[in-house]
């Protein structure tokens, strides 16, 4: 398997955070959950302390799987640290400085997952001919909705009538349900368009005096929405 290669590495500990400069947190094991003490109580971090952007897919593709594995844990710890700080700030009704840091880390984590999936997928395509992503099945529910469902593993094969399939022609109840559903959706869409048209026609004077707009339209061109 592809992942057997990276099985041997232990998740790295972030050395930077262990070597804290502050005497208060130096002995504590839980210092990994806190930001650098220089940043405590700051409204905004200095420009050098801020992250620029998350790692892009193109950059991550150049890295080895071991490096990606290490980077994952670094980012995971960083995210936990930021979440801790964010919750501490929220609990005391304060503004969390530079909240975009969290977005950057989350973006990196997402990109790493994508790149690892790409590699895993390539391996599976080569070795087995199947995709690494979970297989999907098209299923029709009892109410007549047809949708894609992720296939799941089961300990035993399904019994009579347990497995769902796609149904091309719906029976009585499901058919009626779909008819009514479509009608309801159509009405919703019509009302939405009507409201939009009314809002577009309203001017400031009408709003100020709470006066209604025009109700009937002889020509379709008068309605802005349908143009």
């Amino acid at each position: 398997m592809f992942f057997r290669i990276i099985n041997r590495i232990q998740p790295c500990t972030s050395q930077q955070r262990l070597l804290s400069r502050s005497p208060a947190l130096q002995n504590s094991l839980l210092q990994q959950f806190f930001d650098d003490e220089e940043n405590f109580g700051k409204q905004e971090l200095r420009a050098k302390k801020r992250p620029g952007r998350s790692w892009t897919n193109e950059e991550l593709r150049l890295k080895s799987s071991e490096d990606l594995h290490k980077l994952w844990y670094v980012c995971l710890k960083e995210r936990n640290m930021l979440l801790t700080m964010e919750k501490a700030h929220k609990a005391t009704a304060r503004h969390f400085p530079n909240p975009e840091r969290l977005d950057r880390v989350k973006g990196t984590l997402k990109n790493i997952e994508e790149v690892v999936h790409e590699r895993n997928d390539a391996y599976y395509q080569l070795e087995t001919g199947d995709s690494a992503s979970a297989p999907k099945r098209t299923v029709t529910s009892f109410m007549g909705f047809t949708y894609e469902k992720r296939a799941e593993e089961h300990y035993s094969p399904p019994g009579e009538g347990q497995k769902g399939y796609e149904v091309p022609y719906l029976d009585d109840d499901a058919y009626l349900m779909q008819k009514l559903w479509n009608e309801k959706e159509l009405c919703k869409e019509r009302d939405r368009k009507d409201n939009l048209a009314r809002r577009q026609l309203a001017n400031d004077e009408m709003k100020h005096y709470k006066r209604g707009g025009r109700r009937t339209f002889d020509r379709l061109e008068d309605l802005k929405v349908y143009q």
Binding site: N7, L30, F33, W72, N80, E113, E153
Partner: peptide, 26 residues
């Protein structure tokens, strides 16, 4: 995100990229 069913005789489930979060609270 992708949990596999455990079968008798198989090795224990391994998570290489855990996506759990956790935050210290006062």
């Amino acid at each position: 995100k992708a949990a596999r069913l455990w079968q008798p005789g198989n090795p224990q489930r391994r998570v290489f990229l855990p996506d759990f979060w956790l935050a210290l609270v006062e």
